[in-house]
């Protein structure tokens, strides 16, 4: 068995999952991953999607020609590869898309976001695929801000009401274009799939401890002539912003999580702050975006003013 720690959970897996941080093999697993027969359909599903079905606490996800995944009660994942799929291909979906669904199934708040450490707190950047989350985290990494998580951020509200992010220590996942534009070729690891130009990239530094959330930014692309800037929406809009940036927003409704996200959103908006980061997309604008963020971190007390 392989042991990992994913979004704070102890995971025992029958298969190697590249890109995850190793876990403590002596700790009792909260999630087990095993290679086992998985049906093509569930009995009496109450919801059927284009690639998935749900029946009670069983959730089936099928990625044709790669694998079928059966998630039970947020505690176990069984997978069966299809048509001799490459184990590496199965693994990238297990540790990404499938684990994201599992976190929703566990009733956790999970955002589609990357996160870096600023002044001892987590700063999150939310957005859909292609919004620039990983690229911004990688660019900040080059400036000395350690990586906390890439792509998925699991959030817990502690008993003291402080929102915390479970550090994931996942490697960065960057496209070739970003790697070359950011000058990270030396840190480039394996391709995530052998037919894709998307690679694991070692962050210069990473944080492996859970940390309180300092700020959440929703990445918003603007076009000429709109000006870049950082806005703080009112608490209602901030909560909506958090919901639309869930890892899989559709599951909030399907798993009856609206209340969890609403309460989480109001707490995060009140304690850490939820902001809209308006900027032009593209590598040219990165230095200006980082300068704007640094100014904002000083303003909200995450960093001291440059002397």
């Amino acid at each position: 068995m392989f042991s990992y720690r994913v979004s704070g959970l102890a995971v025992a897996s029958e298969v190697d999952l590249p890109g995850l941080i190793p876990g403590d093999p002596d700790r009792a697993p909260e999630v087990t991953i095993r290679n086992a027969p998985v049906p093509f359909a569930l009995d009496d599903p109450e919801m059927v999607g284009p690639t998935w079905q749900r029946a009670g606490d069983r959730f089936l996800l099928r990625i044709p020609d790669i694998a079928r995944f059966l998630l039970e009660d947020g505690r176990s994942i069984a997978f069966e590869a299809e048509n001799g799929a490459d184990p590496q291909d199965v693994a990238v979906f297990l540790s990404g898309s499938v684990f994201g669904v599992l976190l929703h199934q566990r009733n956790q708040i999970v955002l589609h976001a990357s996160a870096v450490l600023v002044g001892g707190k987590a700063v999150l950047f939310c957005g859909a695929s292609g919004a620039g989350k990983s690229t911004l985290a990688a660019a900040l990494g080059k400036q000395g801000y350690p990586l906390i998580a890439d792509d998925q951020c699991a959030i817990e509200i502690g008993d003291d009401g402080i929102p915390m992010i479970q550090a994931d220590g996942r490697q960065l996942r960057l496209w070739e274009k970003s790697i070359s534009e950011l000058g990270l070729a030396e840190r480039r690891g394996d391709a995530m799939r052998n037919r894709l130009l998307k690679f694991y990239v070692d962050p210069a530094a990473s944080s492996e401890r859970p940390v309180p959330i300092g700020a959440v930014y929703a990445l918003t692309e603007i076009r000429h002539p709109d000006e870049p800037g950082i806005e703080r929406p009112n608490i209602v809009d901030a909560t909506k912003l958090l919901t639309v940036n869930a890892y899989r927003p559709m599951l909030i409704h399907r798993f009856a999580q609206r209340d969890v996200y609403f309460r989480g959103g109001t707490t995060i908006a009140a304690t850490s702050g939820i902001f809209r980061l308006k900027r032009r997309l593209g590598f040219d604008g990165l230095p200006a975006t980082i300068a704007m963020l640094r100014g904002h971190w000083t303003q909200i007390g995450l960093a001291e003013a440059a002397s």
Binding site: G49, L61, I63, F93, S97, M192, R193, R195, L196, R248
Partner: peptide
């Protein structure tokens, strides 16, 4: 597409 299929399409060809 990603929302409906729950799959990270960036990892698909």
């Amino acid at each position: 597409f990603d929302r409906q299929t729950l799959i990270d399409s960036a990892l698909l060809t």
